[in-house]
Every structure is written in structure tokens, then in C-alpha cells.
Write a protein that binds this DNA or RNA. Structure first.
Lengths: 245, 245
DNA sequence: GAGTGGTCTAGACCACTAG
DNA sequence: TAGTGGTCTAGACCACTCT
């Protein structure tokens, strides 16, 4: 039971150890504020060097799951309340699930198109190529909260135009069809007055202030795959970031 | 000239090395997309172990200043246009300095007060205690961009009411006077219609959409020290986050 | 002083990239 | 195959906390 740490597993040891500790915490075996065994001891238990263990721990400290105090020890941190949306590249769908909220998605428009100039530039493709254009609204408790327009490089995600986005998430679909993992993204946040076209989908009067996000997502290998525009009712859904110094 | 790295400096070596590399990049000595010397070689040049150098580099990779590609090498990343404001706990002043922008600060109001209810709760203090209330506007190119109201626990930062905030930053002043370091903060982002009181300071018509941030900052030891409200003209100043998956 | 995490080393081997 | 970064080790010494 001690050792789910497998030196033959292609996953790096530190990553396996991180997961192992996460599991201990999530399962409640290690409770909030509980002190972990000393690094030296834990390293011996896991049969790894202290350096490897430290690397595993450092990830969890950065996440806030663990807290280390020089001279005292390593402790399980307070459970997170915040929304990792402003910090970590996760989709809206994923963030809702983590928050334990239920939502539903309505697909307004879905189909292949040729990219506009701005999309061509962002995705680095020519006007002749095809993109999947997706227009969706998401409701929480039957109230519209998010309106999104996505532009996906269809050449990389073959057949994605046929996916049923009321049942699957865009991120998982992109990873599956491109056979690559999503690597990182860049988001900008602005406040904007909502325009007529978006306003009607969010049941808001024209000119109402909304959070506007512009997003560009990259696959491994620095391949831009998706760009999107997102309008968010921030009276309903606030973005929170935990920022470390 | 090679070695600004001083093993007797109480700063950790990896931190000195990070700064040294940052300097090389900012000064233009190492240009965008330029390949750095191999880790082994650079470690020898700096007379440190490869492990230490790797630690220094890893910070810069996380910041996006450097890019590492397995099997190819380490490269200077694309210059950041973005504001690390959405990611890292830095003050507005600090973010401006990093961007190389000049700004000036106007202090509208500064003085000791008793905290309102909402501030009491956030800072965990009683109504009888004193806070420093600070109201400021910041201009870039003579245009107002940010309006802020700060509430600082004055008991912890003795004498902070006498600081000259046109010349110093709030963060540095808090650290100096509390003798503690700032640890982390929580920010929430919203879009709001600006109200009359704030609108006049930002030269905006009432009701204009602005980014509204609510912030709570903690010192080491989980001590809440400052809470603030920030109104930001997002037509002038956009918040960008680089998000890793 | 005992126990903890923080830093650093010197060296090993592996995995990926490119000619 | 040569060159690069990725991982891991075993051990050393230091700095901090608590008693």
C-alpha cells in the first residue's frame, strides 16, 4: 500500500509522487493542517532521493495544497475556495464542474467557415483554410451566464465539426481529434459594454457592462489551435485569482 | 564582468542567477529567440552546479522570459506585451515599471480612520482599531487609468500614514513598516458600470464599463494586511494572463 | 541542541532533436 | 551520432523554529 511509486513508469517520479500526495489529501487520509512526515523520512519511505521528493512537493506548494514552513515542517493547506479560472488554463465547463455547479450548453451555431482576417492572424492560417465556428451560450440555473464564439483550426482537429458540444467539452474534443495535448493559453480581460448581438443571448440590456475575454489556446509544440471571444455576466460569475508573490 | 554571482551574498545563488539572466535579456545582450549557452556550459561559466542553474532557469521559463525545448536548447522568449497583473501578485506600480512605462500618482485622500464593517471583516479587526485609508489616481501619459481605494491595517504598519505615496509604493511601504514580507493575495475581477464618485477621477461618463478588482493581501503568517478596491479603464489598460495547463 | 526545510554539488543516465 | 535538456541520486552544509 505504501508504494504506488513505480520507477519503471514512464511518468517522472516527482509527478507520481505529487499525484500520490494529492490523493492522500483528497481522500482525507491527510487532513487540513496535518503535518507531513519530514522530507528525509518521506523520501526514504518512498525510496527516492530527497531532491526528487522536494520537486514533487514544490508543485503542490505552488498550488496551495501544501504549505512549507522553514524549520517547522510541511503541512496540508486550507481547502481552496477560489476559482482557478484566472490562473490556470481550464475551460468554463471544467471550472463549473470543479465548483460543483451544474450547467447546460446551448449551441447556437456550429459549422465550417473560412477565417476572418483577425482569426487568420491568430491561428496562423490562410483565408482558404477552414475553421470550425462555434457560437454557444451556457446557463447556470436556467440563467444565461456566458456567451462564447470559438474559432478552431479544423485542419488540425479533423471531423470536429461533427461533435456534439452539448455533451462534450471543446477542450477534450480538441485534444482527442488533434492527438495532441493542450499546452497553454493567453487570456486578456476587459470590461466592455455589451453589444446588441451578444446582449440578447445573455438577456441583458444593450450597453450593460460585461467581462470580455479574448483567448488564444496552443497545443504542444506551440501550435495555435483555438481562439475565442467570451462575454461573461460578472454579476453572476466572478473570476477569482489566488496570486503568489 | 562575467561573474556578478557572489557565493557570499545571502541571496540564494539561483536567485542571483535569475536576476543576472533577466538583466542580459532586458539589456538586449541576449535577444529574442537567441539560444543560450547549453546548461552544462553556462553552469561552468558561472561556476555553479547544473542543478542550481536549472532552478534559476525554471523560474524564468515559468515567467515566459525563456523557453526550453528538450533536445534543442534554451531560448529567449518573445517579449511580453502582457501584464503579469492577472497572474502574479504585483502592484500596479511594479507592473508599470516592468513594462517600462512611466506614470504618476496623485493622492486624493490619505489618513487614519476606523474601518467600515466590510473592511473589519476582511482584515479581521475591530471597529475601534485604525486603518489607513488611501484614495489615489494613477496617470499614464497624463491620462487617468486607475482609481484605487486602499484600506491598510495601521496597527501592523506603524507610521504608514505619514508615508509619501507619490514617491513610494504601497507594497514596499507595508513590507518595510510591518517588518514582514507580503505573501499572497486574492483578487476578483468584475465588469462594472462606473459610478459618479469614481467616474470623475477617471474622466469617464457615469455608467461607462470598467474593470473592477477587489483585492485582499496577506503578509507571511496569513495575516491580512490590506484590502482594496480598484477601478481600471480597460480601454487603456488590459489585463493579460498566460495560463499553463 | 534536535529537528525541520533551504540550498548546493558532482555526477550519472535517459529522452529528445537534428544533421 | 553529437548535443541538448529532463530526471534522479547521495550527500553536504546552512538557516530557521522550538524547547
Amino acid at each position: 500500500m505504501d508504494r504506488f511509486i513505480d520507477k519503471n513508469n514512464p511518468n517522472p517520479l516527482y509527478s507520481q509522487i505529487s499525484d500520490w500526495i494529492r490523493e492522500k489529501v483528497y481522500s482525507g487520509e491527510w487532513q487540513t493542517n496535518q503535518q507531513l512526515p519530514a522530507e528525509e523520512e518521506l523520501a526514504q519511505t518512498l525510496n527516492v532521493s530527497r531532491g526528487t521528493l522536494k520537486k514533487a512537493i514544490s508543485f503542490l506548494v505552488k498550488e496551495g495544497l501544501l504549505i512549507q514552513i522553514h524549520g517547522k515542517g510541511t503541512f496540508v493547506g486550507e481547502p481552496k475556495v477560489s476559482q482557478p479560472f484566472g490562473q490556470e488554463l481550464i475551460s468554463f465547463a471544467e471550472s463549473m464542474v470543479r465548483k460543483g455547479l451544474s450547467f447546460d450548453t446551448k449551441v447556437i451555431e456550429q459549422g465550417l467557415e473560412h477565417p476572418k482576417k483577425s482569426v487568420q492572424e491568430k491561428l496562423g492560417i490562410a483565408a482558404e483554410e477552414q475553421i470550425l465556428f462555434l457560437k454557444r451560450v451556457r446557463n447556470i440555473d436556467d440563467e444565461p451566464v456566458i456567451f462564447m464564439e470559438n474559432y478552431i483550426n479544423a485542419a488540425i482537429c479533423k471531423g470536429i465539426q461533427d461533435a456534439d458540444f452539448t455533451k462534450t467539452t471543446l477542450f477534450s474534443e480538441m485534444e482527442r481529434r488533434s492527438q495532441k495535448k493542450i499546452d497553454y493559453g493567453v487570456r486578456t480581460f476587459e470590461a466592455r459594454a455589451i453589444e446588441e448581438d451578444q446582449a440578447k443571448w445573455l438577456s441583458l440590456p444593450e450597453g450593460y457592462p460585461v467581462l470580455y475575454l479574448d483567448q488564444l489556446v496552443y497545443l504542444e509544440g506551440n501550435i495555435p489551435i483555438e481562439t475565442s471571444k467570451v462575454w461573461l455576466r460578472s454579476d453572476k460569475y466572478v473570476i477569482t485569482s489566488l496570486l503568489n508573490r
